Measured scan of single mutants.
Amino acid sequence: GTEIELESKNGQREHYTATSEDEARKIIEKAVRRGIKRIELRGASEQLIRDMQEIAKQIGLQYRTDGSL
């Protein structure tokens, strides 16, 4: 699965493990709508990382991946 670590603007951290790319995408989209400061992805697919970079650029988000592409 993909591990997703979120940090909201007030510094609250949340951790999710998505079993599918679809689920990961839903978690990320929800977080973005809620207003999130930072997202870290571990074990994400190349496609998901590309999507994440696109989203991050659009809304000026900090993100990090573990680089295991």
Rank of each mutant, 00 (worst) to 15 (best):
I4A: 01
E5C: 14
E14C: 15
S8V: 10
Q47T: 09
Q58H: 08
E46Q: 10
E40F: 10
E29P: 00
K57I: 07
H15G: 03
G67S: 06
Q53M: 14
T2P: 10
E21D: 14
Q47S: 12
E21W: 05
L6H: 01
H15V: 10
R64D: 15
G1Q: 12
R34E: 14
E14I: 09
D51Y: 15
E7P: 01
G35F: 04
R34F: 03
E29S: 08
K37L: 11
D51V: 14
G60W: 07
R64C: 15
Y16W: 10
Y16L: 08
E14F: 06
I28E: 00
K9I: 13
E5W: 14
S8T: 14
L69F: 15
S8G: 12
Y63Q: 15
D51P: 00
N10P: 03
V32I: 14
H15M: 11
G60T: 02
I4Y: 01
K30A: 14
G35K: 03
K37G: 06
R13G: 02
R13L: 14
Y16T: 02
R38D: 02
L69E: 07
K26A: 12
H15Y: 14
R25W: 08
A18K: 03
I39K: 00
K9G: 10
I28S: 00
N10R: 06
K9E: 12
A24Q: 01
I39S: 00
A24V: 08
A31R: 02
L6M: 12
E23Q: 08
A44N: 02
I59F: 15
L69W: 15
Y63C: 15
R13F: 13
Q58L: 12
G43T: 05
E14Y: 07
E23D: 09
E40Q: 12
R13I: 14
D66W: 00
A44M: 04
R34C: 13
A31K: 03
R50P: 00
H15R: 11
I39F: 02
A56I: 09
Q58D: 11
E14N: 06
K37D: 05
E46P: 09
R42H: 09
I4D: 01
R38C: 13
R38L: 06
L48G: 00
S8P: 05
T2M: 11
I59K: 08
I36N: 01
A44Y: 03
E40M: 14
Q62I: 15
R64Q: 15
G67L: 05
T65Y: 05
